[in-house]
Design a binder for these strands. Structure first.
Lengths: 247, 247
DNA sequence: AAGGATTTGTTCGTATGTATT
DNA sequence: TAATACATACGAACAAATCCT
């Protein structure tokens, strides 16, 4: 008879307690048994209510321990870095940023030559299957994975340079591209979001209900020559992306 | 006994069929009954496997009808519009963009004066509770909601202007700000993602497993005066965000 | 147009496994 | 070791929406 299913009513109750501030980050949420008693429902129903909150990313369940409220303290990634931030409002963001301090470490770096995959050929201005160098890596903050990134460069440009080695040297890939006469002068970045594939969830150690932010950066040298495409897969619960531009 | 739970094995099978291209967008996924027969499991187990794919946003279930594979054809939103796109690679994006053509319509527009909420006071350079004008609206594409947006302007700047009325006139709010001597000359945008709250899911008619992309735009006039903060909530399955900037 | 078959959605109950406290 | 709490899986029944004959 209930127009609203029981499990959703319970989930709504719990969600309100969380969003209303009654239950704060780290606080335990009532257990399945507690909900069975409180609402007089079967375990499956209590379980479904708790599962809904997990799927929304509001809570985190651990076997034997219980279910707790999650928090959000993002890392800030700035797309454009050149402008002086102090000019335009030191102004607090609407989100509290757990900024800086903690350095990004690189993990699981692989560098190899591959045939250019179909989706990148147009953006790199080369043919499908043409050789590209791929720098694939994982970023950690305080030992926890937060982002995956793979950079692609046409082999016709970077072959023989330090970009094809693990250590790109001082200034990194941008500096090497500049030495090759192909300094990137213009970037375009595209971002979308979706739920992670199992492989991504594993590599980023994502909890259920955590979407990923996908960012693709396209870089061009003078004259419109494509020199880089980077595909990033970021933990949506850890990242805040920022871009800055004139009106 | 199974190291990998049954429902996950089944989900993995189905996922592979989808990602491998065997099942394409719009195709029906085996029903609960079919899975019960094929794998010899109870309904709850088959159901959980199907539910996992729905939660990942890969499929969409409709009662009485069945479960089908979802597609992704995003709308492109450009943050910065000034640069000539043709200069930097007509280059295809890594994602197929169902670009342009279809206009954005505005729906459910409300304009009202409110006390400034805490999270925006710093960014707007005013005190909590100071009056701000809020333009709240929903955007549709072909009748379907795709984004919610709320723009905030300090009343001290926009009071009396057309920005406080539903119809802002030709050129919209930016043109009116310019007339007031507070043309925005610099923008900063921040983006993050998370699963939607129930209210957001309802307003955007989101299917399960669809995250939202949250974008906040901060606008400043000459001299660093804050003139605008806009909070956007976009359907993650419909939007591709783009920014462009010099290296 | 009516009705039956199909398909997903909800809820109950029961049992057992596994990780944590 | 024992208690707690989440995880998996079974079976059964009914409801609600859709589809097809």
């Amino acid at each position: 008879m209930p127009e609203e299913p029981l499990h959703r009513q319970i989930a709504d109750d719990l969600r309100q307690r969380i969003l209303g501030g009654e239950l704060q980050a780290g606080d335990p949420v009532p257990s399945e048994n507690a909900l069975m008693a409180e609402y007089g429902v079967a375990q499956g129903t209590a379980r479904k209510a708790l599962g809904a909150l997990v799927a929304e990313g509001l809570t985190e369940a651990r076997r034997g321990s219980g279910t707790r409220v999650r928090g959000f303290r993002p890392i800030l990634r700035r797309g454009s870095r050149r402008l002086d931030r102090s000019v335009w409002g030191e102004g607090r963001s609407v989100w509290e940023v757990d900024l800086d301090g903690r350095p990004l470490e690189v993990d699981r770096l692989t560098v190899q030559e591959q045939p250019c995959p179909e989706r990148l050929a147009g953006a790199l201005g080369i043919a499908i299957g043409d050789p590209v160098w791929v720098r694939d890596r994982r970023y950690l903050v305080e030992g926890e994975p937060v982002m995956l990134a793979a950079s692609y460069h046409p082999a016709s440009i970077v072959a023989g340079s330090a970009i094809t080695r693990e250590d790109t040297g001082p200034g990194g890939a941008p500096a090497r591209l500049a030495e090759l006469g192909f300094a990137a002068v213009h970037y375009r970045e595209q971002a979308r979001t979706r739920m992670p594939l199992p492989g991504e969830a594993a590599a980023l150690e994502l909890g259920a209900g955590t979407p990923v932010m996908l960012v693709v950066r396209y870089g061009w040298a003078e004259g419109g020559v494509p020199v880089e495409v980077t595909e990033m897969t970021a933990d949506g619960s850890r990242y805040l992306m920022e871009w800055e531009f004139p009106a």
